[in-house]
């Protein structure tokens, strides 16, 4: 050790989310950009006087078009930035913040670039795709703001791996508890062991209704049997133990399914956002090419 005081690499220790990164720097910048663009749009006449008013062919149209295209390309690079870490300083939070706020400003920039002139052509396709990307982004922001808290509350201090392990443990316990049962009762336990899908079918996942699932059916059937036995005055302790285990498994399944559902929702919007972005980049290329080739 040299005895020299080595200064630590500077790091961001402020505790603020991506929306208000650096005190909302990008939100302010985006708002200012929108206001500026709107003001210029309102205060200028299209030059040379254009009978159809503002569109991409004016100097403002070209400026906004160039700005918009550069921004779209740069914003889509977030996906690359996220995956290339390296040793150099950068803040992915800052990138996200810029991505979100500047992305919103594209509504204004893109629309004013077109001068409101939309039709059924490749140029308007680019605008439409851009709007889908931005709107899906809004959805994403909404999910990012509301779901993490629920995800955290649902999992408590349990990790996903532990949730699955808990289910396996319950299955083992069910298996050993079912050994002394007769064939009919054992079949019910087997139903829980063999016909239960944690995530379930697509229909189950979308509806959130898992009542047709093996464990739920087994629990219902065993529950009926336990009640019937009690009414008959001959409570069956072994079946009660099975019911208890099935109930615990049902609760564990519910937690795991909520966990998976929340995580899926946090990613689902990206399945629109990202492919449409790729389509947008293609449409944008087509739009720019066609403008210059067929002017």
């Amino acid at each position: 050790m040299t005895g020299k005081a080595v200064t630590r690499a500077p790091r961001d220790v402020t505790h603020e989310g991506f929306l208000n990164h650096k005190g909302g720097r990008w939100a302010k910048l985006s708002a200012a950009l929108c206001l500026l663009v709107i003001a210029v749009y309102a205060l200028t006449d299209p030059v040379p006087p254009n009978p159809t008013g503002h569109n991409g062919g004016t100097w403002l149209g070209y400026t906004l078009g160039t700005l918009g295209a550069v921004m779209i390309v740069w914003l889509s690079l977030l996906g690359v930035r996220k995956r290339v870490v390296g040793a150099k300083p950068f803040s992915l939070k800052g990138w996200t913040s810029a991505h979100v706020w500047l992305g919103m400003s594209l509504i204004v920039i893109g629309t004013l670039h077109a001068g409101g002139q939309l039709g059924w052509n490749v140029h308007s396709l680019a605008w439409l795709l851009m709007m889908i990307v931005i709107l899906s982004g809004f959805w994403g922001i909404h999910l990012y703001r509301s779901l993490p808290e629920k995800l955290s509350a649902n999992r408590g201090e349990v990790t996903q791996a532990q949730m699955l392990e808990a289910l396996r443990t319950l299955d083992r316990q069910l298996d050993s508890a079912a050994q002394p049962l007769d064939a009919a009762d054992a079949a019910l336990v087997r139903m829980s062991l063999e016909e239960t899908g944690i995530a379930g079918t697509l229909r189950q996942r979308l509806s959130g209704d898992y009542s047709g699932d093996g464990n739920a059916r087994a629990l219902a059937a065993v529950g009926d049997k336990v009640l019937a036995a009690m009414r008959a005055g001959q409570p069956d302790e072994r079946l009660q133990q099975i019911r208890f285990l099935l109930e615990r498994k049902e609760a564990a399944l519910a937690q795991a399914r909520r966990h998976i559902a929340l995580k899926a929702q946090l990613e689902l919007w990206l399945y629109i956002h990202v492919p449409v972005t790729v389509a947008l980049l293609a449409a944008l290329a087509a739009h720019i090419l066609s403008v210059f080739l067929y002017w």
Binding site: E16, L92, K93
Partner: peptide, 11 residues
């Protein structure tokens, strides 16, 4: 911390 997209992680 650098790679956290939402600012959740701090050291």
């Amino acid at each position: 911390v650098r790679a956290c997209p939402t600012g959740a992680a701090i050291r």
